Computed example of a mutant assay.
Amino acid sequence: MANTPQSKKRARQTERRTAINKARRSRIRTFLKKVEVALAGGDADVAKTALQAAQPELMRGVTKGVVHKNTASRKISRLAARVKALSTKAA
């Protein structure tokens, strides 16, 4: 348990940051889920717009330190490839 005033303050700050980061992670997952659902549904246009909405959200997570840069890039790359494959198959 925190004893010094500084350690008590750090504990409070950590609690706040944890809540904020959890909300950010949840928001990112929601955007990614929308892309996944569109891909599963087979709708190329919806998947493309969902991916375009998810990309900045994922990269915002990188700048805020919630997600690692390479992880975000990998997720975007894999989703983009799946969306592209879906749109070529549909066309």
Rank of each mutant, 00 (worst) to 15 (best):
residue 2 A to P: 15
residue 2 A to L: 12
residue 4 T to P: 03
residue 5 P to V: 09
residue 6 Q to C: 00
residue 6 Q to W: 02
residue 7 S to K: 14
residue 8 K to L: 12
residue 8 K to E: 10
residue 9 K to Y: 11
residue 9 K to E: 15
residue 10 R to N: 14
residue 10 R to H: 12
residue 10 R to W: 08
residue 10 R to F: 07
residue 10 R to P: 04
residue 11 A to I: 09
residue 11 A to Q: 14
residue 11 A to C: 02
residue 13 Q to F: 10
residue 13 Q to H: 11
residue 13 Q to E: 15
residue 13 Q to N: 12
residue 13 Q to R: 06
residue 15 E to D: 15
residue 16 R to N: 12
residue 16 R to H: 13
residue 17 R to A: 15
residue 18 T to F: 11
residue 19 A to D: 12
residue 20 I to Q: 14
residue 21 N to Q: 10
residue 21 N to E: 12
residue 22 K to G: 11
residue 23 A to S: 14
residue 25 R to W: 08
residue 26 S to N: 10
residue 26 S to G: 07
residue 27 R to V: 05
residue 28 I to Q: 01
residue 29 R to F: 05
residue 29 R to Y: 05
residue 30 T to D: 11
residue 30 T to H: 04
residue 30 T to M: 00
residue 31 F to P: 00
residue 31 F to K: 06
residue 32 L to K: 09
residue 34 K to Y: 01
residue 35 V to W: 04
residue 35 V to Y: 06
residue 35 V to S: 02
residue 38 A to W: 04
residue 39 L to K: 03
residue 40 A to W: 07
residue 40 A to L: 14
residue 41 G to C: 00
residue 41 G to K: 02
residue 41 G to F: 00
residue 42 G to Q: 03
residue 42 G to T: 08
residue 43 D to E: 13
residue 43 D to M: 01
residue 43 D to W: 00
residue 46 V to W: 00
residue 47 A to E: 03
residue 47 A to F: 02
residue 48 K to M: 01
residue 48 K to E: 04
residue 49 T to F: 01
residue 50 A to V: 01
residue 50 A to T: 01
residue 50 A to N: 03
residue 50 A to Y: 01
residue 51 L to V: 05
residue 55 Q to I: 12
residue 55 Q to T: 14
residue 55 Q to Y: 09
residue 56 P to C: 12
residue 56 P to H: 12
residue 57 E to Y: 03
residue 57 E to N: 06
residue 58 L to G: 04
residue 59 M to I: 08
residue 59 M to Y: 12
residue 60 R to Y: 09
residue 60 R to P: 02
residue 60 R to M: 06
residue 62 V to W: 06
residue 62 V to K: 05
residue 62 V to F: 07
residue 63 T to K: 11
residue 64 K to M: 06
residue 64 K to C: 03
residue 64 K to R: 09
residue 64 K to V: 04
residue 66 V to E: 12
residue 68 H to F: 07
residue 70 N to I: 13
residue 70 N to V: 11
residue 71 T to P: 00
residue 73 S to L: 06
residue 73 S to Y: 07
residue 73 S to E: 13
residue 74 R to I: 01
residue 74 R to V: 03
residue 76 I to D: 07
residue 78 R to Q: 12
residue 80 A to W: 07
residue 80 A to V: 04
residue 80 A to F: 09
residue 83 V to R: 10
residue 84 K to T: 15
residue 84 K to S: 15
residue 87 S to V: 06
residue 88 T to G: 02
residue 88 T to F: 09
residue 89 K to S: 13
residue 90 A to N: 10
residue 91 A to H: 08
